[in-house]
């Protein structure tokens, strides 16, 4: 899909003042499966949908703990995500070594975003093809940030990234006013419901989703497999009880659940929303 002569190099501006290579990198984020994040007054929660390469493989991990007070959920090129993850862990450790305290979330996110920016300006680099949801808790309370390949980052009350995340965002926009006072358990359920909205087929199981929680007085913890099972049961009971079906994604056909994260698998286009434009 050769579009024009301005889109093959990250160091070339288009006549309209756009950077196509960076915009393409942001498409890679939409290829990854959905990740959701939300915050209350005391806690931040991440929820992710995991994919398996094929029936014999394990599910690809999407949540990574950075430090006791912070973790990330990724969507896009997993390998790029792990590089950033390692960087963030290192920074947190350095901060702990020097100050014997946990690193402020916003400052680390800014450093990560600056790292992204450098890759949008050098001909021998390519932009990171991954979006991060960073959830953490510091002296200023819980935070949720979203970084993207362009080097932009935003702080959100709640956010979803990845394939068909628009459906999740719709759920979040509908309910976010209830989040500040929600209990951690309610937050996890909100996260899972938002995640379920992004499903194209099948349903949430203990194998294909993972949740993480961090907040005041509780360090970052990932709930997987049997730990997340009770919450999925609660959702099922809710549905069974006729508690109102949640908005499901309009079926935007995608190259099967086995599509590799941002890999060479069929391109999934969820309508061009997803990551926000490069500038706003």
């Amino acid at each position: 899909m050769f579009r024009n002569q301005y889109d093959t190099d990250v160091t070339t501006w288009s006549p309209q003042g756009r950077l196509f290579q960076v915009e393409y990198a942001m498409e890679a984020v939409k290829q990854g499966s959905c990740a959701v994040g939300l915050t209350s007054k005391t806690h931040a929660v991440l929820a992710t949908l995991k994919r398996a390469q094929n029936e014999l493989s394990s599910y690809q991990r999407k949540i990574f703990k950075i430090d006791d007070h912070m973790g990330i959920a990724i969507s896009g090129l997993t390998a790029d995500g792990r590089v950033l993850c390692r960087y963030m862990r290192n920074e947190c450790l350095n901060h702990r070594y020097v100050y014997e305290s946990s690193m402020p979330i916003g400052r680390l996110v800014r450093q990560v975003a600056d790292k992204h920016q450098v890759c949008t300006q050098r001909s021998w680099k390519r932009p990171y093809g991954v979006g991060l949801l960073v959830a953490g808790h510091d002296a200023r309370g819980p935070h949720l940030y979203n970084t993207c390949p362009s080097g932009n980052y935003w702080e959100y009350k709640a956010m979803a990234i990845g394939a068909r995340s628009q459906a999740s965002k719709t759920y979040l926009e509908k309910h976010f006013e209830a989040f500040p006072t929600a209990t951690p358990e309610e937050m996890i359920l909100h996260g899972l419901r938002a995640l379920a909205a992004s499903l194209s087929e099948g349903e949430l199981t203990k194998a294909n989703c993972a949740v993480a929680l961090v907040g005041e007085g509780s360090s970052f913890v990932v709930l997987e497999e049997d730990d997340v099972e009770p919450y999925i049961q609660m959702l099922k009971e809710e549905e069974g009880g006729g508690g109102g079906a949640e908005p499901m994604a309009e079926a935007a056909a995608e190259g099967g659940a086995a599509a590799a994260e941002g890999g060479a698998a069929a391109a999934a286009d969820d309508g061009g929303d997803g990551a926000a434009p490069m500038e706003s």
Binding site: Y99, S101, A139, R140
Partner: peptide, 9 residues
């Protein structure tokens, strides 16, 4: 960002 080093830090 409203965060300042404390004496312990």
């Amino acid at each position: 960002d409203g965060i300042e080093l404390g004496p312990r830090e």
